[in-house]
């Protein structure tokens, strides 16, 4: 499903070259639940960004569903992101001027899905995440946990195959964090491949497979 071959990504910080990713090889099967752990600056987020096609590796190949996505054009990479990948961020990244429902519908709106179908799918997702009566609220009228649930709803509305979550509980209290993790795990049980970056050892150990990172290298 996901195959990374000798991926390298270096950044220039001042005069120094920093290895964000250093010869990373990784095989991830359909439906896996993986947590990526490691100290700050170990390359966890860079790995997630490369997997999410937000960042381009300097070397190596990345196969997603059998096709080499490193070679794709900008437009086609955008299509892959839209169709196959869902993102959940630590800071939610909801558009403040849009309602929860509009935020959730945003990927469909950008993709040009017709109104009726969009509304139907948003209603379904709101229901499955028990947000039905929050659809007309703006992000600033929602609690942290609710905001993250809206963000998850936005990530799943396109029915992606991979869910990339970068510290999804980082800005939440413990109870909301557990709630959010439960939702993500439920999605995983329904077949989605889940990659979770976290600092929290307790959360990390709930995953079926743990990847440790250190200085851009992967130790699984």
């Amino acid at each position: 499903m996901i195959k990374l071959e000798h991926i390298a990504r270096t950044f220039k910080v001042g005069d120094e070259l920093v290895h964000g990713l250093d010869d990373v090889c990784l095989d991830i099967k359909d439906g896996e639940y993986i947590s990526i752990m490691g100290p700050s600056g170990s390359g966890k987020s860079t790995l997630l960004n490369v997997l999410g096609l937000l960042d381009k590796p300097d070397q190596g190949h990345y196969f997603l569903d059998g096709s080499n996505v490193t070679e794709l054009s900008e437009q086609n990479q955008a299509n892959v992101r839209r169709e196959k990948i869902g993102f959940v961020f630590q800071t939610f990244h909801l558009v403040p001027r849009l309602t929860a429902a509009e935020n959730i519908a945003l990927p469909l709106t950008l993709a040009g899905v017709p109104h009726e179908e969009r509304d139907q799918r948003v209603q379904d997702v709101l229901k499955s995440l028990s947000l039905t009566n929050r659809g007309h609220h703006r992000p600033d009228q929602l609690s942290g946990g609710q905001r993250q649930r809206v963000a998850i709803a936005r990530a799943v509305i396109t029915n992606p195959v991979v869910m990339l979550a970068d510290e999804p509980t980082g800005n939440l209290d413990h109870a909301s964090g557990i709630e959010v993790i439960n939702i993500l795990e439920d999605l995983n049980k329904n077949g989605i491949t889940l990659l979770l970056v976290t600092h929290d050892i307790e959360l990390g150990e709930r995953a079926h497979r743990i990847i440790h990172m250190m200085d851009g290298k992967v130790y699984s």
Partner: peptide, 13 residues
Amino acid sequence: AEIGLLKALGSPR
């Protein structure tokens, strides 16, 4: 941040 989000959600340039 919003532009970054649009890109993550699959908006091409």
